[in-house]
């Protein structure tokens, strides 16, 4: 089989580009630990409260150390449960200071959902039976819409929240 010399040049260039991309993302993933979320931790979708993180009192924002936060969320069609405010109303906004490290932990009680803090790298599938977990440093301030980005039924587009970085 014959290859024109320019085709060789082109394929070497193309292959080198692909290898370069793989080296960059491979280095970031395996040395810097920036894998996409994957924790392979399971949970009973019909009894999420059995897991401490998802007991009603532990939902929403908790500061676990200086500048370090955990946010626990239970997703269900068509709502994110971020816990309750002091006055008993449902929390809809999570407020964290700029530069803080936030661990988002989400699970679903029913169907498949998405969880994206739009405009950040926090973007996960949320599936019944699994715990989705992603830690992110909130580098940029602003109001970020939390959207369900996987179709979960006819009220899918009404499932949202807000993360405010101040």
């Amino acid at each position: 089989m014959h290859l024109h010399k320019y085709e060789k040049v082109w394929l070497v260039f193309g292959l080198a580009s692909l290898v370069l991309f793989l080296l960059i993302i491979g280095f970031a993933a395996f040395w810097k630990g920036t894998h996409p979320q994957s924790h392979i931790e399971t949970i009973d979708p019909q009894n999420v409260e059995a897991n401490e993180s998802f007991q009603p009192d532990n939902l929403g924002l908790t500061e676990v150390a200086d500048g370090k936060y955990v946010v626990n969320i239970v997703a269900s069609a068509f709502n994110y449960d971020f816990g309750k405010e002091e006055d008993g109303t449902a929390t809809k906004t999570i407020r964290v200071p700029k530069g803080s490290t936030v661990l988002f932990q989400v699970t679903s009680k029913d169907v498949v959902h998405g969880f994206q803090v739009a405009g950040t790298n926090v973007n996960m599938m949320v599936e019944p039976g699994h715990i989705s977990r992603f830690e992110s440093v909130m580098k940029n301030d602003g109001e970020f819409t939390v959207v369900c980005n996987e179709y979960c039924g006819i009220g899918h587009h009404l499932m949202f929240g807000t993360v405010e970085v101040y």
């Binding site: 993302i25 970031a28 993933a29 996409p36 790298n121 973007n123 996960m124 980005n149």
Partner: peptide, 10 residues
């Protein structure tokens, strides 16, 4: 890989 979170399901 991880860059997918920039665009996944958007």
């Amino acid at each position: 890989h991880q860059v997918n979170s920039l665009v996944h399901n958007t």
